[in-house]
Write a protein that binds this DNA or RNA. Structure first.
Lengths: 347, 347
DNA sequence: ATGGTTATTGACAGCGCTGTCAATGCCGGT
DNA sequence: ACCGGCATTGACAGCGCTGTCAATAACCAT
C-alpha cells in the first residue's frame, strides 16, 4: 500500500496548480471544461480523496455533523441515524456521535468541550436533550448551529418534529371510537416535553368526547419496559379497571401487555392497548400493538438538510449589505405522523 | 461568544512556547512541575480545547475510530456503540459512523474512499461486514488497522467475539434436557459466518445426544422477523411438528412465536421457543424468550481498547531494532456468553 | 488596433498543531 | 574551574488544504 495521494500529486499529474485542483474538488466556478476534465481524470487515476482534517483546518469547517443524544431507545436512535446519514452521505458530510450523560454534573462542560475539539459544523439534538433548557441555552450562547429533532423542545432554536399532542389525541379518539369509556394512560417522564404533549392530547380527546377525567386511570412511567409493568400493575389492580390503556410509548405498552397476560386478561378482548413510536417490537408482540408512527428517518433527514443548508448559507455570509434580515432557520417544521392500527385495539 | 482559544493564546498566557503547551496537552515527559501547572491553569482559564483537525493534520492521526456496519439490528448496534464509545471517551477519541450499503456494486470503493478522506486511526468492522472476504482483503491491503466484532469472520485479521457454536450447542442441550426430541431450527442467512456456527452448534448437540437429524425440521431465514414467520409456518405445517424451535436470532424467534399463537399453540406448553442475542424484545415478549446473551457492550469496549492500543503501539514504532517480532494484535479474543433462560422454554 | 471587461489560473500565506533538532540551563565528577 | 550528560525549553518547518489577491489570457465593442 502506497501512501495516499495528496492534492499536489493530482496537481502535478494534471499539470495545474494545487489551487485549481481544489477548485475542481469543490465544484467552484471559473474552471475551463478542459482543465476540469484533466483534473478529474487525475483524481480518479490517483484515487485521490481530499483529507477532511486538512480541509477542515484550512477552510474553517469540519464537514462533520455532531449527534448529541441521551438515553433514547436503540430503535429510535437507529432510525434517526439512518435518516441523518442518508443526507450526510449525499452532502459528503460525516457523522460523529456524542452520547451525553445527562446525570453527570459537568455535563454541559463535557458537551461544550467535545464541540470545542471536534468542531462539528452543526449539531443535532435528539430528545430528551432538546428539552434541557440549560443545555440549549449553552448551545445558543456558544454560537454553534443546531437543530432539535422529534421534540418541540423548549421553544428555543429550530426543531423538526411531529404534532405529538394531535397524534395522541387521534389515537385516543380511536380508542373511544371502539367503544372504550374507561381509558387508562401511562405517562412518560415529566422532563420530556413530548410526554407532556402526549398526555395533553389524551386529555383533549377525553374532554372532546365528554368523558370525565379519572385520575386513578393515570400512571407515570419512564419510557422503559419495566415502568410499563409497574404502571399496569397499578392501573389493573382495582376492581373498576380501565378497558383500554394508552401508554406513551411502545416499550411501556409492551409492559402493560405483559401484566395483562399475567393477570389472564386477553388482548384486545379484556383490555385494549395502544403505544407510541412504532418500534419494531410493536409488530413483534402478540397481538400486534396499535401505535403512532413518527417518520423518524424523515425527521433526521429533514433536520440534517436544514442544518447543512444553514451552514452553507452562513459560509457565504460575509460581504453584501447587512440590511436584509438575517436568514435564520424557520423555527420549526412539523411533519405528519401516522396511526398504525393493529390487533391490540381491535375487538 | 468569543472565538475559541488556540494553543498560542495559552502559550502567551502561560508565558511559554507553543510547543511546551503541546507537551502538556499530550502528557509528554520532560516538562517541569511548575511549567506544567502554569500551563494547565491557563488551559482551564481559557477553556482551551485542542482542535482535532489540527492535531490530526500535524500529527498524522485523526483521533477518530470508524465504525463500519451493514444492516444489523438497532439494538445490536446500539449496544455496540455504547461499548465503543465508553472506551473512546476515556481515550479522547471520537467515533465516526459509516453505514455500508452491501448491495451497492461500488461498495468497496465507497468504503475505501470514506477511509481515505476521514482517515480514521482504526476501524471496527461489525457483522455481517466482517464476513465479507473481499472487503476484509481490501482493508488488509489498504493497511488500515481494523478489528472485527462479534464475528469469527473469515479468519483474516483480529476479532473479538463469543464462541457462537458452543453457545448454540448449550442452548440446544438445554432444550434436549427439557425433554424435547423433535427440535426445529431456523437458520440465519448463509453469508453470515455466525449463522453457520450457530447451526453447527445445534447439530453438534443433537448428535451428542444421539438424536437423529431431521432435515424437515430445518428452515432458513434472514434474521428478520418476517422470515421467522415464514420459517415457522413451514416448520409447524406438517402433522409431525417439532416440540421446540430454536431460531438463530431473537427477531426470528419472535416470528415463530407469532405463528404459534396464530395456530393456537401455547408456549411453552405446545411449543418451546429459543432465540439468540438477548435483544430487548426477548424480555418484552410473552412469555419471555429464552435466548443467548452476548456481552455486546463488552465486545465493543474490548475491541476498541485493542484497536487503540495497537494504534498507539504503531505510533512509537519508528526507531529501535526491527529484530523483535512485529507486535501484531493477538488474532482473536473469545468472550463468555450467557444463557438467558426464560419462560418460553420452561414447561 | 485600443482600452475595458471578464474568465481562468497560480503564488502565497496561513489554519492550529506536532515532529525535529538545536539551544539553554543544571547536575555531578574530576 | 571544566566537561560530559541529561532535563527542559523553544525555533522552525511543515501537515494538506483553502482564502486572498494578483497575474495572465481571452474576449468584446469601438
Amino acid at each position: 500500500m502506497t501512501s495516499a495521494a495528496t492534492i499536489s500529486d493530482v496537481a502535478i499529474m494534471a499539470g495545474v496548480s494545487i489551487k485549481t485542483v481544489s477548485r475542481v474538488v469543490n465544484r467552484e466556478p471559473n474552471v475551463s471544461e478542459k482543465t476540469r476534465d484533466r483534473v478529474a481524470q487525475a483524481i480518479t487515476q490517483l484515487r485521490y480523496k481530499p483529507s477532511l482534517a486538512a480541509r477542515g483546518l484550512a477552510g474553517g469547517r469540519s464537514f462533520l455533523i455532531g449527534l448529541l443524544y441521551g438515553n433514547a431507545s436503540d430503535s429510535f436512535l437507529g432510525e434517526l441515524q439512518r435518516g441523518i446519514l442518508r443526507t450526510c452521505r449525499e452532502r459528503h458530510y460525516g457523522l460523529a456521535l456524542f452520547p451525553v450523560m445527562q446525570q453527570a454534573p459537568d455535563m454541559q462542560a463535557d458537551v461544550l468541550g467535545w464541540i470545542g475539539s471536534t468542531q462539528p459544523d452543526g449539531i443535532i439534538l435528539s430528545p430528551p436533550l432538546s428539552d434541557d433548557t440549560a443545555l440549549v441555552d449553552a448551545l445558543l450562547e456558544s454560537g454553534v448551529k443546531f437543530i432539535s429533532v422529534s421534540s418541540a423542545g423548549t421553544g428555543r432554536g429550530p426543531a423538526v418534529h411531529i404534532d405529538e399532542a394531535a397524534a395522541a389525541q387521534q389515537m385516543t379518539r380511536h380508542l373511544i371510537g371502539a367503544g372504550h369509556r374507561r381509558l387508562g394512560f401511562v405517562k412518560g417522564p415529566a422532563d420530556h416535553v413530548c410526554s407532556c404533549l402526549r398526555y395533553e392530547g389524551f386529555c383533549a380527546a377525553l374532554s372532546a368526547a365528554g368523558i370525565p377525567f379519572d385520575d386513578s386511570f393515570i400512571a407515570r412511567g419512564d419510557f422503559h419496559f419495566s415502568s410499563g409493568v409497574e404502571a399496569a400493575k397499578q392501573l389493573l389492580s382495582g376492581p373498576n379497571r380501565p378497558t383500554a390503556i394508552f401508554a406513551s410509548n411502545d416499550d411501556m405498552a409492551s409492559g402493560v401487555m405483559h401484566v395483562a397476560y399475567q393477570k389472564g386478561l386477553t388482548i384486545p378482548g379484556d383490555l385494549a392497548v395502544a403505544g407510541f413510536d412504532d418500534t419494531p417490537v410493536s409488530r413483534q408482540l402478540w397481538p400486534g400493538l396499535s401505535t403512532v408512527k413518527q417518520p423518524i428517518q424523515l425527521i433526521g433527514q429533514t433536520a440534517t438538510e436544514r442544518l447543512l443548508t444553514d451552514i452553507s448559507g452562513a459560509k457565504n455570509e460575509n460581504s453584501d449589505n447587512g440590511t436584509e434580515p438575517k436568514h435564520r432557520l424557520a423555527e420549526r417544521e412539523i411533519l405528519p405522523f401516522e396511526l398504525m392500527l393493529r390487533a391490540s385495539t381491535k375487538g
